[in-house]
Simulated scan of single mutants.
Amino acid sequence: MATNKHIESGILELYIAGALSEKENEQVYRLIIEHPEILEEVKEIEKSISTLISNVAPKNTKSFFKDILIKILQEKEDSKKVIAIKTSKKKWITYTGWAASFIIGSTLIISLNKNANLQGQIDTINEAKEQYEIKLEETNYNLAENKKLLAVIRNKDIITVPLQGQNVYPEAYAKVYWNKNTKNIYLDVQGLPNPPKGKVYQVWSLKLNPLTPTSLGTLDNFAINENKVFTINNPNDSQAFGITLEPAGGSETPTLEQLYTLGAV
Rank of each mutant, 00 (worst) to 15 (best):
N113H: 14
S251C: 09
I185S: 03
K114T: 14
A2H: 11
Y186H: 05
K62G: 05
I153Q: 15
A2G: 02
F65I: 15
M1V: 09
S48G: 15
T231C: 14
Q190L: 12
I45T: 07
F64C: 03
N140L: 15
V28Q: 04
S205K: 08
P213N: 06
L208G: 02
Q164S: 14
N209G: 08
E226H: 09
N146K: 12
K197Y: 09
L73T: 05
K183S: 07
G249C: 03
V152I: 15
I232D: 06
E24I: 08
I16E: 10
V42T: 14
K180W: 00
E257I: 04
N225G: 06
A2D: 04
I32S: 01
N184E: 10
K86E: 02
K156C: 07
T182W: 00
D123W: 03
N55K: 14
N126Q: 13
K207F: 06
F65D: 07
I103K: 02
E257V: 00
P162T: 14
I104M: 07
L69V: 15
E24V: 03
S63N: 15
Q119W: 12
L14V: 08
A57W: 05
K91E: 04
I33S: 09
E75D: 10
I49S: 10
L219R: 02
A240Q: 00
N184M: 04
M1F: 05
N225H: 03
I33V: 13
W98R: 08
I232P: 09
T212L: 02
E13H: 07
T61R: 14
E257R: 03
F102L: 11
H35L: 06
Q119A: 07
N117I: 12
V161Y: 09
S9L: 03
R154A: 09
P170K: 08
G165V: 08
I243F: 00
Y15V: 12
K207S: 01
F241T: 00
P210D: 09
G165H: 14
E75R: 09
Q190C: 05
A151W: 10
K90H: 05
I32C: 11
Y141H: 08
E127G: 12
S215I: 04
I109P: 06
L187Y: 01
K66M: 05
T107D: 03
V189A: 00
L12R: 07
H35N: 12
S48E: 15
E77S: 10
I38W: 11
T160G: 11
A99D: 08
P36V: 05
W204N: 07
S48Q: 13
E127C: 14
K197S: 11
N113C: 14
G250W: 05
Y169S: 14
K81E: 11
E8F: 04
E41V: 12
T51G: 10
A19C: 04
D157M: 12
Q190I: 15
I104Y: 02
